[in-house]
Design a protein around this nucleic acid. Structure first.
Length: 487
RNA sequence: GGUACCGUGGCCGAGCGGCUAGGCAAAGCUCUGCAAAAGCUUCUACAACAGUUCGAAUCUGUUCGGUACCUCCA
């Protein structure tokens, strides 16, 4: 492999060679979910994208510390800092304790990511578990002069900050326009500036989730937790910070401001942002009501779906697009993905069973170079897959006896294919046939049917096939005998 | 309104100055008692108009269409 990994950095809008701060180590922080409702498919796309990066770093031999938080407090509804706490609101709605809400949707989130075969992060810290760190950080920011107290709440002074630093470096927005465009405040607002955001919020009497602080009882602002936890576990400066693109203008912008105001340094070298999943060309989001829940997709129980698709089909579907492009969800696209994935996985299996010859008419090294080159080009999974499909075709040709491979090349190809598909892309075969007992039964039925076929008793052989089909088992007559799959 | 981004064959999607991915669908073929599955082959597109260039899907400009952000969202 002769190319180096390049990553697109939102900070300077350039793709550049990745150089870790400490050789051999990668520190990566990704903004996790706010666990007040079910994770939808758009959320899943983001975490699948970062899972690919995580897996690829591991594959390249890096030691990775992957931190992904759980937001279980402090995230408010609606207008910046005035809305209701999301957990409190949902808790009222579902008649549960806020922490029951947190537990319920954390479990859901983990279950969804497990189904998509994403690797768990190294550390998964929660906001409520780091209140002390957040209070400390707030104190420091106040001491450094970039935050002020107002009626028991602490706000970040964006205007003051922007005089010393470039507040909009990440979003590349015009600060003056932002100042003028932001919604007019009503008179009772506690903030000095329009863009100021809360670091610490004074709890109203009815607020359940509250903690003691030097400024009275309250709870932390949403942006603060990521700053506090990333610096705690990865240091004041680390390699990669990621999240969905929609976090750029507000959440990540504020996070950077907090870190600079506290530690005098920008937290991450590379800012990586994933693009949105769309449905009929529109962003999938909770507020638009066009969300797909993974469970709905798997079962097909959704008005826009004709039938269900497996988690691996969905994962493959997502990998066919680059993580920085929008991706549109549709029945046809999912069907295409389903078949493509089956072909790919079949070739993985076939590759290790190929008959070998004296010469190879295919260069495994060349394939490897192409696949690595693709992944090194900002994790370009669609191109990597395109190259893997060249190998799929070749595997099939060898299997048909139209091309040949030496034993060494066959082993190398089989290993590489499986490593890429399973370890790096995280695609695994669906649940294999079934239990031993089912396998035994099927073996018996298949041999009975073969016997009937030999006697040209096609009525019996077709009866077996049709009956099995009805209970959801499909029989396929191949060259190497008959196989079956459970639908 | 402001600011970005995007418009690729029937569909999904890469590519981002020359060599014109890949998947699915379709057609033909192979295999087959039939079927299904599988495999092989074929199918040359880049919104429109103008410009730069020896050469543009790729660069520039204009127009049309779409999306996102500016308010919580991955």
């Amino acid at each position: 492999m002769n190319s180096e990994l390049k990553i697109y950095n939102t900070l300077n809008r350039e793709t550049s060679i990745f150089k870790p701060i400490h050789a051999g180590l990668v520190g990566m922080y990704v903004c996790g979910p706010t666990v007040y409702s079910n994770a939808h498919l758009g959320n899943a796309r983001t975490y699948i994208s970062f899972d690919i990066m995580f897996r690829y770093f591991l594959h390249l031999g890096y030691k990775v510390r992957y931190v992904r938080n759980i937001t279980d407090a402090g995230h408010l509804e609606g207008d910046r800092d005035e809305g209701e706490d999301k957990f409190a609101k949902k808790a009222k709605l579902e008649q549960l304790e806020p922490m029951e809400i947190v537990q319920k949707y954390s479990l859901d989130f983990h279950e969804v990511l497990r189904q998509f075969n994403t690797l768990p992060p190294s550390i998964e810290p929660t906001a409520t578990g780091h209140i002390i760190e957040q209070i400390e950080m707030t104190k420091k920011i106040i001491a450094n002069g970039y935050a002020y107290e107002s009626n028991g709440s602490i706000y970040f002074d964006v205007e003051k900050f922007s005089k010393a630093y470039n507040y909009t470096a990440l979003s590349n927005r015009n600060l003056d326009e932002l100042l003028n465009n932001t919604r007019t405040l009503d008179g009772q607002d506690e903030k000095k500036g329009r863009l100021d955001f809360a670091l610490w919020i004074k709890a109203k009497p009815e607020h359940i989730m509250r903690w003691q602080s030097p400024w009275g009882e309250g709870f932390p602002g949403w942006h603060l937790e990521c700053s506090a936890m990333s610096s705690k576990y990865l240091g004041n400066e680390f390699d990669i910070h990621g999240g969905g693109m929609d976090l750029v203008p507000t959440h990540h912008t504020n996070e950077i401001a907090q870190n600079i105001a506290c530690h005098h340094t920008q937290p991450a070298r590379y800012w990586v942002h994933t693009n949105m999943l769309t449905v009929n060309g529109q962003k999938m989001s909770k507020s638009l009501g066009n969300s797909f829940l993974p469970a709905e997709l798997f079962s097909g129980n959704h008005p826009l779906l004709e039938r269900g698709y497996s988690p691996m089909t969905v994962r493959f579907f997502m990998l066919q697009a680059h993580y920085r492009s929008t991706l549109d969800l549709s029945n046809e696209a999912l069907q295409a993905a389903e078949k493509g994935l089956a072909r790919l996985l079949n070739a993985c299996k076939l590759a290790s069973q190929l008959k070998t010859g004296n010469v190879s008419s295919f260069s495994v090294e060349e394939l490897k170079d192409k696949v690595y080159a693709a992944l090194n080009e900002d994790f370009n999974t669609p191109i990597a897959l395109a190259n893997l499909f060249e190998a799929v075709k070749y595997v099939n040709l060898v299997n048909d006896g139209k091309e040949t491979l030496t034993a060494a090349d066959q082993a190398a190809l089989a290993q590489f294919l499986n490593q890429m598909v399973k370890d790096v892309l995280g695609l695994k075969p669906e649940q294999e046939a079934g239990t031993e007992k089912i396998d035994g039964l099927m073996k018996m039925l298949i041999s009975m049917r073969a016997e009937a076929k030999n006697k040209k008793d096609f009525a019996t052989s077709d009866f077996i096939r049709d009956q099995l089909k009805e209970i959801g088992i499909e029989i396929k007559d191949g060259k190497e005998g008959t196989s079956f799959s459970i639908l």
